[in-house]
Design a protein around this nucleic acid. Structure first.
Lengths: 134, 134
DNA sequence: TATTGTTATACTCTATAACTATA
DNA sequence: TATAGTTATAGAGTATAACAATA
């Protein structure tokens, strides 16, 4: 049930992201950087539930388009400090708003109080899942 | 959030299903037949949110293992009536119980009343999604 | 030796279109 | 011609292992 719902919502969101010239993983990476810069690409990958090898091409693209910065750390030159540029932050803000408009269509199936409750519970499960399920 | 939660739970459930020698799609097909036989494979595929071409190999396997029947309809020999055998029904029952045990671990993150509420809302969204999102 | 980032590759999953048999 | 089922194939998504640079 969860899987199918995720697939349907994902497919419905792809055209919205396309308006911002973003793939799903590019959007997820921007979201992962929204709270602030991240010190290693591995940490970023883990935070968004992706493989570290998979986001590399995503980071390449986002960097080329000037949406993120990827600077070597001076104290440990193996790691790259990744963060949003002002353009990247604006793109994240705009696309996130569009996505939320889209989600509202579905969430309106639920009564107003239930919407907030559902999202809160979903978030709680989302946070607990990695520890409980590996 | 939904996608990652779905992926985590799916991955956590695969070992459980493996104990019954079932893949995820085989399990989903058995679930789709749980309420009763289905008159066409296309209808079954659509009901579980799959492509009609994808479940064919699944049906082949389940039939070979004696978990489902797949009889040609006498009035229209193009269509196949698909249903569970007694063995199939038992396998579904047992595997479903094991899966639910597994899900309980995660759902226990939520308070008792919230669990039921979350599942009810999830079901409501699940049912509305195909119409609203395509 | 261990770790970060990268590349290459193989594997799985999914979608699409073409084929058959019935109607 | 249209539909149910099937097959084949190409594409996307994913996981794994090997590699270079740095610690």
């Amino acid at each position: 049930m969860l899987s199918r719902l995720a697939r349907l919502t994902t497919n419905a969101e792809l055209p919205v992201l396309a308006r911002f010239d973003l793939t799903m993983w590019e959007y997820v990476v921007l979201l992962g950087l929204g709270e602030g810069p991240v010190r290693t690409q591995s940490a970023l990958a883990e935070a968004i539930g992706a493989d570290k090898t998979r986001i590399i091409h995503v980071l390449d693209t986002l960097q080329q388009r000037g949406l993120i910065t990827r600077e070597p750390d001076e104290t440990d030159r193996r790691v790259r400090l990744v963060g949003l540029t002002p353009t990247g932050r604006r793109t994240l803000h705009d696309s996130q708003a569009a996505i939320q408009d889209n989600e509202t269509v579905l969430l309106n199936v639920l009564a107003d109080g239930e919407q907030r409750r559902f999202l809160r519970n979903l978030e709680r499960l989302y946070e607990a899942a990695p520890d409980l399920l590996g």
